[in-house]
Design a protein around this nucleic acid. Sequence first.
DNA 1: CGATTCTTTGAAAACAGTCAATCTGTGTGG
DNA 2: CCACACAGATTGACTGTTTTCAAAGAATCG
Lengths: 192, 192
Amino acid sequence: MHPQFETYLQTHTNLTANDIALVSSMATLRVLKRNESVLDAGDICKHKTFVVSGLLRNYGASADGSEHILRFSPENSWTLDVESYDKQEPSVINISAIEPSQVLMWSKTDFQHLLVNVPALKELAEQLIANNTYYSSQRMLTTLSASAEERYEDFIQRFPNLLARLPLRMIAAYLGISLKTLTRIRHAQLTR
Amino acid sequence: MHPQFETYLQTHTNLTANDIALVSSMATLRVLKRNESVLDAGDICKHKTFVVSGLLRNYGASADGSEHILRFSPENSWTLDVESYDKQEPSVINISAIEPSQVLMWSKTDFQHLLVNVPALKELAEQLIANNTYYSSQRMLTTLSASAEERYEDFIQRFPNLLARLPLRMIAAYLGISLKTLTRIRHAQLTR
DNA sequence: CGATTCTTTGAAAACAGTCAATCTGTGTGG
DNA sequence: CCACACAGATTGACTGTTTTCAAAGAATCG
């Protein structure tokens, strides 16, 4: 049905072939153009989303139009706004495609049924939550303790594969620095 | 056995009196002096900890001796280093008492048994994880998008009760600014 | 190819950090 | 009960970093 996603489940979980088919069968494929959004601030996050191909970002937009990026979601990762999804309240963030992308989406009720009926899926969900918790904490500590340049270094260590796919202004929006500062850091590194 | 903790469970969960007694009976009380630590960087986090009274902080220490605070844990809250606890790997952070405190501790194996035997406790644990996730995301967005002064305002809105109990240098270490900058902000506010 | 987005750069201004000295309040031991 | 020590907070002068604004050049999308 959705071969890339089924391969992902095969390699990342213990789901049986039957379960994989079941989970996969409940998904809806959506094709996204560059800059197309799957969630706008103010709307309620109604789906779990798996990125089959492409690249998405979660970001908050300030009144002055500036963006602040919470996470990037490349192929083979999941995305949503957890708080809005859990509580079914309006989101404060946006999710949209950086590259043309394909995503699979499950409604909350469908996914809840799957979690109940497929225990190994629940395990995967818990693992993803845990990884997110670990990374949030690490990122917060890095943000508090490291200089702009150190954070940039950390970023390219951690996401080497994203580097070439992202406009620099988005890296800056993720690191919490201005584009100017990022340019300066990169220039400084060339001279070493 | 531990009346404050039992009251906490009564008001925050659906646990039966029996379950409350069971959970409470597995806890060890520890009395902490000011600055005494319950976890040092490099050690493995072996316990879940509930703060009965007092105030603790989770922080990372840099090579130059500066501190960066990830969270404060006042009475009636839980604390640990999740990643170290889950994986039983050395922690990169420290947890120690800001005020003289009393904490209850459960070993990981004991607590895992409780989670299996007391479903309502598992629900509580999941709720705490979810709340932590929501807050981490909000804090990250605030850190990326707000000025030092706005973050300070946000802090006093969110933790009005902690304000008087914390040295300013710790508020600065939480906000990611220098003590000097915090002093400036507070001075600026007086003149309004 | 044309239009849009992205990146770099410079100059000036705003902001935050360091260092060192001073001041304040708290509390402990003699 | 006092005095001293100590941790915390403030201040000034200075330095360093980051942002803002504007302009121009480069790259990329459709």
